[in-house]
Design a protein around this nucleic acid. Structure first.
Lengths: 205, 205
DNA sequence: TAGATTGTTAATCGATTAACAATC
DNA sequence: TAGATTGTTAATCGATTAACAATC
C-alpha cells in the first residue's frame, strides 16, 4: 500500500513541473500509475480527506501532503556501502538526480568501503570512509538510510553494523537474504532474482 | 508465487556447491528463505511431486527441476539498452557473475546505445550496437530478455522497439512507468521508488 | 440545478496459514 | 514399527474491486 504512494507522488511532481494541471481525479491518477481509481482513493483516504467531492484532488496540495507522509518534506541523508563498480555507478546516478531534480530529497552524504585504496578518496565530492568508522560517521552525519552494494558474503555483516549505527532503512543490492530487527526496514533490489523470475515467462503458459 | 522460486533455487545452488547436504525439508528451505514451510510445499507441489513424505526434498533433483521450470536449464541471452554509467556498471557486474558462477545462465550478449561515440566499442568483449539496429540484432542473436537503463524520457520508446524486436521480458531501471503487451513481462527496478518507500518508515508508526 | 467525483461500505478475490491424513 | 515430513484441504487473512450515498 505504502509502495504506491511514491508512484502517485511522481505523477504529481511531473504535473507540478508542467504547471498546467491544478486538479487531478482518482481516475486520472490511477490511469497514469496503473492503479485502479477506487484503490487510489482508498490509499489516499487512509491518511486524510485530501480531495473534494465532485472536483478531485488539488495537485500542489496533495503533493505536499504525500511528501509529508513519506518524510520527504525535508532532506534525508543516505549512505552507500561498497564502492565497487555498481556502488560507484549508483552513487553517480544518485548525485546526478539530486543535482538535476528539485524534488529529489534523498541526499547521498557518505560512502563506505574497506579497501585502503578507496578510503579517503571521494566520488563527486562525497567522501569514502573506512567501513570500520560506520558507527562513528553515521550518527555524526545523521544518516538515516543506506544502500548496500557489497558482495553477498559481507551483506549480513555490513547490515549488522549499519543497524548498530542507527540506520532505519536499508536497500540491499547484494544477492543474499539479509535480516535486521523489525524496527529497521529492508528492501531488496536483487537484480538476478528479477531476471530469473522473468525467465519463467519465456516458455508459453 | 513465481518470485519465490529463484529464492529456493539460490539456496539449493548454495547447498549443491557446499556438497554436504543431500536432502532438505520444506521447514529448512523456508527458514533459509524467510518463507513459511507450508507455503514452500505449496509452491513446489504446484509444479509436481518433488518430495518424499517423511524424508524431504533431494537437493540436486529439486534444483534441476526448478531450473527447468524457470527456463534456466539452458543459457538465456540478454541485452542491455543504455550504456551510461549505470548500464556500464550493471554490465560489468553481470559479466563478472557469469564468469565466476557456474549456475549463472543469463548471458549478456549485446549492448545498445544511441551515442555514436559508444557504438562499435565493447564492454569486456560485449559489443555496443546502434539502438537503431535493435530489430535486426535481437532476433539474430536470439536475445530473449532486456535490461533497460536509459533516461526516463526514452524508456517507453526503447520498450516499444524491444517489443517489436521480439523481446519477452524487460527489467526496467528507468524511473518511469512503461507498458508492454501482456505477452511481454515487465519488472521494475526503480531504485528511487524503493528509497522513497523506506523513507516512510523513518517516522515512528 | 445537473454532473462529477470523493470517501466508504460491502462483496470479491487471491494468497497465506493451519491442520492432518497419507506414506516414506 | 515409530518418527518425520510431504501434499492437500479447509480456515484465515488481507488486499482489491464494485457500488453508492454524500456533496462539491
Amino acid at each position: 500500500m505504502i509502495r504506491r504512494l511514491p508512484l502517485y507522488l511522481r505523477v504529481l511532481d511531473e504535473l507540478a513541473l508542467e504547471g498546467e494541471t491544478e486538479l487531478i481525479s482518482s481516475h486520472e491518477l490511477g490511469r497514469r500509475t496503473g492503479v485502479g481509481s477506487a484503490l487510489v482513493r482508498k490509499d489516499l483516504a487512509w491518511f486524510g480527506e485530501f480531495g473534494k467531492q465532485g472536483v478531485g484532488y488539488e495537485v500542489d496540495f496533495l503533493r505536499a501532503e504525500l511528501r509529508k507522509i513519506l518524510n520527504l518534506d525535508e532532506e534525508v541523508s543516505i549512505a552507500l556501502v561498497g564502492v565497487g563498480s555498481l556502488g560507484m555507478a549508483l552513487s553517480r546516478y544518485h548525485l546526478k538526480r539530486f543535482r538535476e531534480e528539485g524534488n529529489f530529497n534523498l541526499k547521498l552524504v557518505a560512502l563506505f568501503d574497506s579497501d585502503p585504496a578507496k578510503i579517503g578518496s571521494a566520488v563527486e565530492g562525497v567522501p569514502v570512509y573506512d567501513l570500520e568508522k560506520i558507527e562513528e560517521v553515521v550518527p555524526f552525519l545523521q544518516v538515516k538510510m543506506a544502500i548496500v552494494t557489497v558482495p553477498a558474503e559481507s551483506a549480513q555483516f555490513v547490515t549488522d553494523r549499519l543497524v548498530r549505527a542507527g540506520i532505519k532503512g536499508i536497500l540491499n543490492f547484494a544477492p543474499a537474504k539479509i535480516t535486521a530487527p523489525e524496527n529497521v526496514q529492508v528492501a531488496s533490489a536483487d537484480l538476478t532474482l528479477e531476471l530469473q523470475r522473468l525467465a519463467y515467462y519465456l516458455a508459453d503458459h
